[in-house]
Design a protein around this nucleic acid. Structure first.
Lengths: 247, 247
DNA sequence: CGAAGTGTTGAAGCAAATCAATTTTCGTGG
DNA sequence: CCACGAAAATTGATTTGCTTCAACACTTCG
């Protein structure tokens, strides 16, 4: 157990994109007590049906929410990137309705209830946490649109762009691209399509000079063209300062 | 503007399913000031890009969140039924990222900020509102699973069952079935499939003796069989007393 | 009663899944 | 560092679930 000091930087950096936080607010966040844990890849952080435990926050690495349907198909419900909280108020619900798994080895912060309570008691911090929760709801809705209303190439383009803006907000993407350590099969599980088809569409996107996904990296060849293909409108991420990198 | 008195009954009834509310808490909810408005079918209550206004609550009728993708396809993101809040803390975000539309003529309650603030200041009531918001997040995740991981017949079965449990929690469904005043085209827009295909699958579900959708009503012919087909697990709705009707 | 919207059915086409075989990459231990 | 094995990516052939287009029938409601 330690003061959060520097480990919460991605988290705080992201909150500053959407909410007004002054020096005192940041101090409150940095003053929170945090237990940091290193976890390998493919570890469940929470399992469907279990009683929710501590509040967790991703510091490094990539995590996903997922669920397996009765017909056996697995669906990735969300990607959690550094700065994302796994389950803020999950203690209100009696059991997990989905599972959470690491996709890479990760650094995870565990926050005691007391820290959360302390945060919530400060108006600006509380508002910032609400903002974060509303943004994640908006992202989830966009996934519904992605799965229900877009073609395969548009789906991939849209997902790559969503993650681009989110990674950039925590300083993990440049305009060239970003690291995305998932397999094509996992991309398929998040987009509701087979891994084989993901591969074919990726090949065509590269041929068309739009984007390259190789060695677990997304590299933009034509950001504007990709944005047009996806019909991507970054507004739903509610980033006040979408043009800036990490301060 | 009036005391909420009886108009909020579906809302309060639903909250009691998931959260502990004593007499005093219910009194707080009933004491809120409410403006009730009647709205026709196919009216936008909120439009994408607009600055969010008052908090609204559905009293009667059926409402949906929706969004149109750049390729022109419309996706229904959620159904809002009596007792559902349209946007609780939406004032934190600067603009709507989707639109909200009535599907039938509706009775809508408008709640001033002051009422919400008053509610939030009571521990149990606040917790109940959080519970509601978390349940809606869980429902949204299930839609992702529905769109990405299920076949057409499973999708329809799952949606019918989700709405069955939700309508029953506010006393608007019996074990026989419930009113669902949407067109097959609109079902398609919520399930990411064409209206024509919805029709074909509905025909087959009826032939198989599972469920009948006619005259804007869902009638269960074999609730168990339908549940098995959908792989429906009501747990994600987090209803503590799923067997009960309206008290 | 008539018109518009909705539901129903058929035929053809297409996007994506599936199955299968091969190559490439990557992690690991020798 | 290289060699090996496993995982992932790639490519082709085939199948299928769903869409689209189109025509027609049925409701529902002004």
């Amino acid at each position: 157990m330690d003061r959060s000091s520097a480990v919460l930087q991605p988290f705080i950096s992201k909150l500053r994109h959407g909410a007004q936080l002054d020096q005192a607010d940041v101090a409150v966040l940095e003053g929170g007590r945090v237990r940091v844990e290193h976890v390998g890849a493919d570890c469940d952080l929470a399992r469907e049906g279990a009683r929710p435990g501590e509040v967790r926050l991703v510091l490094e690495g990539l995590v996903c929410r997922y669920q397996t349907a009765a017909n056996g198909r697995t669906q990735i419900l969300a990607f959690l990137i550094p700065g994302d909280i796994c389950d803020l108020h999950i203690s209100i619900l009696e059991s997990m309705d989905h599972s959470i798994r690491t996709l890479t080895s990760c650094k995870i912060a565990h926050l005691p209830e007391a820290t959360i309570d302390e945060w919530m008691s400060h108006r600006n911090v509380n508002r910032a946490l609400w903002w974060d929760s509303l943004v994640h709801a908006a992202i989830t809705r966009q996934w519904i649109l992605n799965l229900g209303a877009r073609r395969a190439d548009e789906k991939i383009a849209h997902l790559f762009l969503e993650l681009f803006y989110r990674f950039r907000a925590v300083g993990l993407a440049s305009d060239k691209g970003y690291a995305l350590p998932v397999t094509q099969e996992e991309l398929g599980e998040s987009l509701g399509m087979s891994g084989v088809h993901v591969n074919r569409v990726l090949t065509r996107l590269k041929e068309r000079g739009l984007v390259t996904f190789q060695r677990h990296r997304v590299a933009f060849d034509d950001l504007e063209g990709l944005t047009a293909l996806a019909g991507f409108q970054p507004g739903y991420l509610h980033l006040r300062r979408p043009a800036e990198g990490n301060p």
